[in-house]
Amino acid sequence: MIDFRYHLVSIVAVFLALTVGLVLGTTMLQDPLLNTLKSETSDLREQSDTLRTEKERAEALNEGGDEMAAVFAEDVLDRRLDGTGVVVVSAPGADAEVRTGLESRVEQAGGTVEGHLALADKYIDPDQATFVGELADQLAEGADASGGAGGPYERAAARLAEAVGAVPEDGDGGSGDGGEDGDGGSEEGEGSDEGGGGGIDGEAVLAGFAEAGLLTVEGEPVDAADAVLVVAPATPFPTGASPSPEGEEAEPHGNDAVLPLVAAVGGDAPALLAGDASAAGPGGLIARVRRDGTPVATADAVGRPSGDVAAVLALAEALEDDPGHYGTGEEADGFLPDPPPPAREADETGERTEKTADRRTPQAG
């Protein structure tokens, strides 16, 4: 008969066997296991030290490259943008220091920063899209390009691009050459509204968007853009609910709002979209531009001297040739144009090159 004492002896025997097994296992396996762990830990520590040394060396080389770029920037950029009026457009969330750094390099290259448009968060708010489009239509009433096609941001982009002069001048009474005040060119007679009307009133357009809280204006950007520099946000816009064209991931709504403006200003005037590495990464505006094949130059290493110099060289190249993509991100053609674009020569007035003037002349037919 199985009694309590039998159960007690069985339990004690089981625990005794476990204890003996643990003792034997730890004494027999302790040394080989510890030796293996110590060896692997030592290897990992050596790899970590090697990677840390390489990282520190890479950082030192980058800092040295930036120091060299800062020292020789004036020589490298000399006359690359001579006679070029540049209008700067900042996307919502763009870093102000990055923008001012790029502007200083533009001036080193002989360009003139004519003005700055800073898009507000309200501009890319999905709830404001209808309002943005309606405002664009109102500001275009009575002009050759009244209304416009496309969605609200396409129409707003067209108005803003026209306001700064970054579009082809068509018809007999374009707004660019008839009057320097950006008021449709009607004061001088040549830009009269006969036979279809003149262009939009650039000052009224920018004032309308500014009064609506969609952007702020600095300087005198109306009809001043021989080239346009767009500064991407410091971090990618938040992801929205709309799927990307590939259907693989959600696309930030901010990209859908700003991209039409990037495309519009790059429709005729040379344009550069500049940002840091994050802008060329997932969800970044530069990555979207490169993927869509938008005809503007891009630079994804700004915010440090070498990257800023490369960005201005990219803009200078766009003045002379097809726009390229530069930096360290995917689909970049290289870090900077190779060979660098040539220096430019200003015309008799010292304001615009002959090529720039030709580009802005209305084309017959």
Rank of each mutant, 00 (worst) to 15 (best):
Y6T: 11
I286L: 06
E56I: 12
S10C: 11
D75A: 10
A157L: 15
A274Y: 15
V86R: 03
L160R: 01
G176Q: 12
A120K: 12
T100E: 12
P168M: 00
A207P: 11
V296S: 08
R57H: 03
D95C: 10
G174K: 03
V217C: 09
R352G: 11
A287P: 14
Q128F: 15
V88R: 05
A210R: 01
E249R: 15
E134W: 12
Q128I: 07
K55R: 12
L313P: 14
V230M: 00
R45G: 11
L336Q: 07
F4Q: 05
D256Y: 15
A158I: 09
D201V: 07
K38P: 11
A17T: 04
P32R: 02
T26I: 01
A280L: 10
D82P: 07
A118L: 02
A280Q: 08
D95N: 09
D358H: 13
V98Y: 01
A120M: 09
A299L: 04
A13S: 06
D347H: 05
D193N: 14
K55W: 09
T298C: 00
D223I: 06
S306Y: 10
G93P: 09
E345N: 13
A120R: 10
V302R: 07
L336A: 11
L119V: 00
R155I: 02
R80M: 09
V12P: 04
Q30P: 07
R159V: 01
Y123M: 04
E220N: 13
G147K: 01
V258S: 07
E187L: 15
D223Y: 08
A140K: 02
D144Q: 10
P323K: 01
G247A: 06
R99C: 12
G93K: 07
G148S: 00
I124N: 11
G171N: 08
V12Y: 06
G307I: 03
G191R: 03
D82W: 15
T356M: 08
V205K: 05
G189A: 07
D338L: 09
G133Y: 04
I2K: 06
E59L: 03
G148N: 00
H116Y: 15
F72N: 06
P260L: 01
V76E: 08
P245I: 13
H7Q: 11
D276K: 14
G307Q: 00
S242T: 13
M28R: 10
E134P: 14
G115T: 00
A69G: 04
R45P: 14
A316H: 12
D144M: 15
A163Y: 05
A279E: 10
V231I: 06
D78V: 04
A274I: 07
D300H: 05
A94Q: 03
R291G: 12
E348N: 06
D172Y: 15
Y153Q: 00
S278E: 10
M1K: 09
A297W: 02
N255G: 02
K122S: 10
E211L: 13
L77R: 04
A157M: 13
L160T: 01
E46W: 08
V289S: 09
V71R: 15
D347W: 05
A163S: 03
A357G: 12
T19N: 04
R79K: 09
D75E: 11
G240C: 06
G148I: 00
V88G: 06
A357M: 14
F209I: 08
R159P: 02
D226W: 06
R99S: 14
G173R: 09
T361F: 14
